[in-house]
Design a protein around this nucleic acid. Structure first.
Length: 338
DNA sequence: TGCGATT
């Protein structure tokens, strides 16, 4: 029955996507996408969506959630003010398969010390263990809120590495104390448990010269590391620390603004989401149109949260051929006050 | 060769 519901919502999701298209920017202040995790800032019932497809951006998600209920406009998202609606979104959308990934929807938890750093990195697991097996192995230490087994990109086989997030740090500590260095039943190898690296610590800020010399990711290529980034309070992230004095092109406190030139007359926001989404967290896209004709004036902007991802997108998409035109992609500059 | 913003 739930499956049937999902199918029908999947259909309405597509329609909602286009219906809501003109109101995308409304979303900027009520919800956002960061490291592939979608956050709703709802007044009474915050929700968090996990494991999103790489190229699904905020307008898609907003539309998706709008499809629970009437889905008439962007503002409806903010109106998950009843527990019933929030629960309906969780029940209907969690587990929904989108582009071969199952999304997970749950209530967002208020940030607190007790739930911080509760994510474990586990290696040396038998390659035969599935995500379910791993959860079974660790469930006795506490409530598991998220887990995943890493697989080899080419073979699809387990790498013997998993992430398991517990509800509380104390539970994760209990698992380390009891299991670290022990051999699972029937396995010759001991497993290693440690706290997963927090992406806000040891932030590795690559310089532009390093970035541009690294192999450019092909357009459309997935960003495999994204889904592993958990465990931070999204509102408090300071992406600029460590970058001051290095390079501030295109930077704004809200992200890195990218300028795209040579778009066709009929370019739309959807193509920008599709092009930039695979490189990382995109918070906003805009196609600049003539007010009277509503045709694209040949350029647009994309805002990305993380410098590295923005630089990679630029390096990869600059020169990309779209609709018979060669795109020019760079950080936005201030041409106006010249 | 072009760098916005109509909540």
């Amino acid at each position: 029955m739930l499956r049937k519901q999902c199918q029908s919502h999947r259909g309405s999701f597509k329609k909602a996507l286009w219906r809501n298209f003109s109101q995308l920017s409304v979303l900027g202040k009520t919800a956002f996408l960061l490291n592939n995790i979608f956050y709703f800032i709802c007044r009474h019932h915050d929700l968090t969506a996990w494991c999103l497809p790489q190229n699904m951006a905020q307008e898609g998600l907003r539309s998706l959630f709008s499809s629970i209920g009437e889905a008439e406009s962007a503002r409806l998202i903010r109106s998950y003010v009843t527990a019933k609606d929030a629960e309906g979104a969780i029940n209907t959308l969690s587990g929904l398969r989108l582009q071969s990934k199952a999304i997970k929807v749950s209530y967002a938890r208020a940030s607190s010390e007790a739930i911080k750093d509760a994510d474990l990195y586990i290696s040396g697991l038998p390659r035969t263990m599935t995500q379910k097996d791993v959860e079974g192995m660790f469930s006795r230490f506490g409530r598991i809120t998220n887990s995943r087994v890493l697989v080899d990109q080419t073979t699809g086989l387990s790498r013997g590495v998993a992430f398991v997030r517990f509800d509380k740090r104390s539970e994760a500590e209990g698992a380390i104390t009891s299991v670290n260095g022990h051999k699972p039943p029937g396995s010759p190898e001991p497993i290693t448990l440690k706290f997963a690296a927090n992406p806000n610590q040891n932030k590795n800020v690559a310089l532009p010269s390093q970035l541009y010399h690294s192999p450019a990711r092909r357009f459309g290529g997935p960003v495999h590391h994204q889904a592993q980034r958990f465990g931070f309070s999204p509102m408090g992230v300071d992406h600029m620390s460590g970058l001051s004095g290095v390079n501030v092109r295109g930077n704004a406190s809200s992200g890195w603004c990218i300028f795209i030139y040579n778009l066709g007359q009929d370019a739309d926001e959807g193509i920008l989401w599709q092009m930039f989404g695979p490189f990382g967290a995109v918070t906003n896209v805009k196609v600049i149109r003539d007010f009277n004709t509503n045709k694209c004036k040949g350029f647009g902007f994309v805002t990305m949260t993380n410098y590295e991802e923005a630089a990679m997108a630029i390096a990869s998409l600059n020169g990309y051929r779209l609709g018979g035109k060669i795109l020019q992609v760079s950080f936005k500059t201030n041409k106006s006050h010249k």
